[in-house]
């Protein structure tokens, strides 16, 4: 859970920052070199997040590892810069960034919640133990903590959301 929250905060900051800057300077960016400019702006914000996390939340920085700098190549951020911020006014871009970030955070939190509760039988957020499940607490399903558990949960959730009609078929 901690990692999911930290990651969401990082992505929100980068997405918000890059959307604001790109939207503000969208009229003076030459069309032909726009992608390199977007990437440099995004990389700058990721560097800021990286340094801030390193300085103030070193434990979180350690456990996020290389995934924190890898926000640079997160398709969501470049995708929103290209598809939305480079064509729309500032306030709309801020709203877009916030909406996308909340959706990202929800998805991340659902998966983190399920993986932690099923995989360890208990849930703790920033060192505070919230609850321990009766039977799972003693016999946790360890595969959910391991990498394959993430694929399993994503596949099942995606199928479930399609079945319920939350996500449309391709």
């Amino acid at each position: 859970m901690d990692n999911a929250l930290g990651m969401s905060v990082g992505v929100t900051f980068v997405l918000l920052g890059s959307n604001i800057i790109i939207s503000a300077i969208r009229k003076i960016i030459p069309n032909i070199v726009r992608i390199p400019i977007f990437i440099v702006i995004i990389a700058t914000f990721v560097t800021v997040v990286n340094l801030v996390f390193h300085a103030y939340v070193p434990a979180l920085y350690e456990s996020l590892g290389i995934y924190l700098p890898l926000i640079v190549v997160n398709c969501i951020i470049l995708g929103r810069a290209e598809a939305f911020a480079s064509k729309n006014p500032l306030l709309h871009s801020i709203a877009d960034a916030l909406g996308i970030s909340i959706g990202f955070m929800l998805a991340l939190l659902i998966i983190a919640f399920l993986r932690e509760t099923l995989g360890t039988g208990s849930l703790s957020v920033f060192g505070v133990d919230l609850f321990t499940l009766p039977i799972l607490g003693e016999h946790p399903i360890a595969v959910f903590i391991l990498p394959p558990g993430a694929f399993l949960l994503m596949g099942l959730l995606l199928a479930l959301f399609r079945r319920l009609g939350v996500i449309k078929d391709d």
Binding site: F151, L152, G155, L156, R162
Partner: peptide
């Protein structure tokens, strides 16, 4: 979804 389960 079935590709994700295969990956698992």
């Amino acid at each position: 979804p079935v590709a994700l389960l295969t990956a698992m």
